[in-house]
Computed example of a mutant assay.
Amino acid sequence: MTMTTALEPGRPPQQLRDDLWLFPPNRDCQGGSAWWLEATPEPVLIDCPLLTEATLKALRDLAGSRTPRILLTSREGHGRLRRLQERFGWPVLVQEQEAYLLPNVAPLHTFADEHITSSGLRLLWTAGPTPGSCVVHAPHADLLFCGRLLTPLGPGRLGPLRHGRTFHWPRQLESLRRVRGWIPSDAFPQLASGAGLGALRGERLVPFSGWSEAVQSS
Rank of each mutant, 00 (worst) to 15 (best):
L144Q: 08
A58V: 03
R83K: 07
F145P: 01
R66E: 09
L144G: 02
H140R: 15
L153S: 10
F88K: 11
P68R: 01
S118D: 12
L56Y: 03
P129Y: 09
A141V: 04
Y100S: 10
R75H: 08
S74H: 06
L51Y: 00
Q85C: 11
T52G: 00
W125K: 13
E114I: 04
H78V: 08
I70D: 01
V135E: 03
A99T: 13
G147H: 02
P152N: 03
T110G: 03
L123R: 07
S74P: 08
S118P: 06
L150T: 14
P139E: 10
W125S: 12
L108K: 04
V136F: 01
A99S: 10
G120N: 10
R148H: 14
V105A: 12
L144V: 04
A106E: 15
R80S: 07
R80K: 03
A54K: 09
D61L: 15
A141C: 01
L51S: 06
L144C: 05
P68A: 00
K57A: 14
I70A: 04
L121F: 02
P129V: 14
G77K: 07
G128N: 13
C146N: 09
T151G: 01
L71C: 05
E76G: 08
P152C: 05
I116G: 02
S119Y: 09
L84S: 11
E53K: 09
A112V: 07
L51T: 05
C146H: 05
E86M: 13
S119T: 11
E96T: 03
L72M: 15
N104T: 12
R122W: 00
D113I: 14
T67H: 13
Y100Q: 10
V92R: 03
A106C: 15
R66P: 07
G64Y: 08
R69W: 04
P131G: 11
L153G: 07
R148T: 09
Q97E: 15
Q85A: 13
R148I: 03
P107F: 14
I70E: 01
L56Q: 02
T126Q: 07
F111C: 00
W90P: 04
G147R: 00
S133E: 09
L72E: 15
T55Y: 06
T126K: 07
G120P: 14
R80T: 09
T55F: 08
L149W: 09
G120L: 08
F88G: 08
L149Q: 15
P103S: 10
H109E: 12
L121R: 00
A63P: 04
L108C: 12
L123I: 01
I116D: 05
Q85V: 15
L101W: 10
R69G: 06
P129S: 13
V136M: 08
H115L: 06
L150V: 14
G77E: 09
Q85K: 12
Q85H: 11
R122P: 03
L144A: 04
R82W: 11
T117R: 00
E76I: 07
